[in-house]
Design a protein around this nucleic acid. Structure first.
Lengths: 378, 378
DNA sequence: TTTAGCACTCGGAGGGTTCGAGTGCTAACG
DNA sequence: CGTTAGCACTCGAACCCTCCGAGTGCTAAA
């Protein structure tokens, strides 16, 4: 059935399959499942009794020894059971994992939360993160990808009184920003009307970099503005384009870490929490490749040293207008990959749908969870 | 000099002062200072050597024994040194503490950060918290007090295209909120103009509670609106008044906890972090009384059980328009009360100044730190 | 090829001992 | 009479040792 080769392992002839034998796969899967649940190294006896393979512990032991030699399992110390290695988790995620199928309750729970029409985008993003943390019981990061070609689409200047007015800018990502400006000088509605016409003509459709001092001073000359109104408005436009375009990051549910035994050691927890509290480093966390919607990064596959003992699952969703958001969870390598990835995927698809102008989801509609069907085997 | 009385302590006649003798005060101060710095119970020898009182450890010991009997000190166990009790900290804070005077560098650092003109209020508040956490090296909470009589001052409806428009609402606290509305039906600029006139006439100056279903349906009849525009706009007004009026809470710098030895025990840290991650409970944290700008709550003085071993220092600042903000830090009872309260006070005064329309602070202007002069004694 | 049997390994829990910082008390001192 | 040196005592922290048992790898038999 599979290509075989013979190999000398510790002076003994041992069968080594290029791909693992079905039996080894079953054993690896069983060990990983148990370890994910219990966080305790798994012994041969446990597997012999629970896997339903009908093999004795001695047989399991020899298979486990081979899986260890092949790098799929590790032994914390000689007289302990086995634990999946990073390679083992990777194989489990790619081929063995029971794809978790969302229950109706889970899907409804997610739908219910999605339909809460939320307010401003940044608040919405942090709310999404909070919800994801609850959903997965791991710390979560939520961020929006940087938008490279963000432009202002529309300027409105609202006259409030002779020394106050409101700048309203609508951006190409359909977000709207405003600021109340207090002046020491005076304005009138007519001036503001003229200025907004000029700004709509000259400052729309251009990126933040194109708003040069030259453009500003040329506009000042053209409008005869001497009181600095033009530069106030242009400055706000730059500020908005910069901050909005550079994305934002939120971390929520950090205390969830403590729920997992691997972070009972304060220094482990501290290291990871410190990492997560640094906004700039969160931007460097893994993200799905362009052709994928989900990415699972296991332990040492992470670039950051602080994450070498942790795994990250991150999904992408569309915010419309080329902008995208990411939601990721961080947990121990012994993470519940199956459930977490299913829930995050479903959440991401719901969000994309919502941002593409989708209406409120019909409650209990789990028909959209394509790709979440039962996987390899129950 | 002081009223004395004689009292039987453990069968021995012991001098008990109604107020503590100067020497006892000095010893209590010395013990508290050392303990705040080292987090280790303080022995009589340490004090004898470092306090400069010129007394032997035996004398110190007997004074310490009396301070313990009076409730100012505690003994973790018989053969350990002394630790200030909550009562001891309270006395220290009220009477003994060296009032920390900000250095020029500290004041400049704060000024520099204050002058960063920040954007939206909610983001600003979380930024203030972040800065305070950095300033004090303790976890920080920042929140705005609830504004009871918040009203909308002004409505503007901006026509974008036939099925999109922007609602802009200016509130009585001078904040401006907006939302882009996507319609399935169509609108035109004239309708929007009429609607904004009506909303400015009927919906301004009234609180959220006054926006009743009756008012909405009456407005619908008056404008002949059948496509639900009135209720969309009114609904947004309610949402904005509610969320803005109820204040917001942010916690930052939670991982600072780990810097202090009392939170090396994971369960302590976990308990406190869990408490701090619950937004609704943060609202219940102590706040200064009406006639004060700063409040220090020590250990068991806190109402919440989770805070019985922690102290909270919180300052208030004015946001203008009767609204106020709070910044608090949470740390071990062995908190550096002196430095933290000085820095927070200075920060709060700077913020009040800024929100009252104050201009950028002159760099290095420490003249405003009234009340931060050297206190009791250096 | 599988399994029962067995000697072996080694981390963790439990218990005992040592160490020393700090105490309270007493008696002597200025 | 307050202050101090001296001293016996206390008790937690650190260390060491032993025991226990889960789990292993190997071997020989089925």
């Amino acid at each position: 059935m599979l290509t075989h080769e013979m190999k000398l392992v510790r002076g003994q002839k041992v069968e080594v399959t290029m791909e693992l034998s079905e039996r080894k796969k079953e054993i690896l899967r069983a060990i990983t499942d148990v370890y994910i649940e219990t966080a305790e190294p798994v012994g041969s006896k446990t597997i012999a009794q629970n896997s339903g393979l009908g093999l004795s512990s001695a047989t399991i032991r020899s298979e486990m020894a081979e899986l260890t030699a092949l790098g799929y399992l590790e032994q914390p110390h000689t007289s302990a059971g086995r634990v999946p290695s990073a390679q083992g988790y990777r194989f489990y995620v790619n081929e063995l994992m029971n794809r978790h199928r969302l229950s109706l309750q889970e899907a409804e729970e997610i739908n219910r939360n999605l339909t809460h029409r939320l307010g401003q985008l940044d608040k919405m993003i942090s709310d999404i993160g909070r919800f994801a943390a609850k959903l997965t019981s791991y710390p979560t990061y939520a961020l929006t990808t940087t938008v490279s070609n963000l432009t202002a689409e529309r300027f409105d200047l609202i006259f409030v009184d002779s020394n106050r007015f409101i700048i309203v800018i609508m951006l190409s990502d359909n977000s709207v920003q405003n600021r109340l400006v207090q002046l020491t000088s005076e304005v009138d509605p007519v001036t503001l009307g003229k200025l907004s016409t000029v700004f709509n003509a000259r400052f729309t459709g251009i990126t933040e970099g194109a708003i040069t001092p030259e453009l500003i001073s040329a506009t000042e000359r053209a409008t005869g503005d001497s009181s600095g109104l033009v530069s106030v408005i242009a400055g706000y436009a730059i500020e908005v384009l910069t901050s909005r375009g550079s994305g934002e990051a939120f971390v929520t549910g950090a205390t969830r870490l403590f729920e997992h035994p691997e972070y009972q050691d304060i220094s482990k927890a501290r290291e990871l929490l410190n990492y997560l509290s640094d906004g700039s480093r969160i931007m460097n966390l893994p993200a799905p490749d362009d052709n994928q919607d989900i990415k699972i990064t296991i332990g040492p596959e992470n670039l950051a040293d602080e994450l070498k003992d942790s795994s990250v699952i991150v999904v992408r969703y569309d915010l419309g207008n080329d902008a995208q958001g990411l939601i990721g969870v961080v947990g121990p390598t012994r993470m519940d990959y199956s459930t977490v990835s299913a829930r995050l995927s479903y959440l991401a698809r719901g969000l994309s749908w919502l941002f593409s102008g989708g209406a409120i989801l019909p409650p209990g509609d789990t028909s959209r969870d394509n790709g979440l069907e039962d996987g390899f085997k129950k």
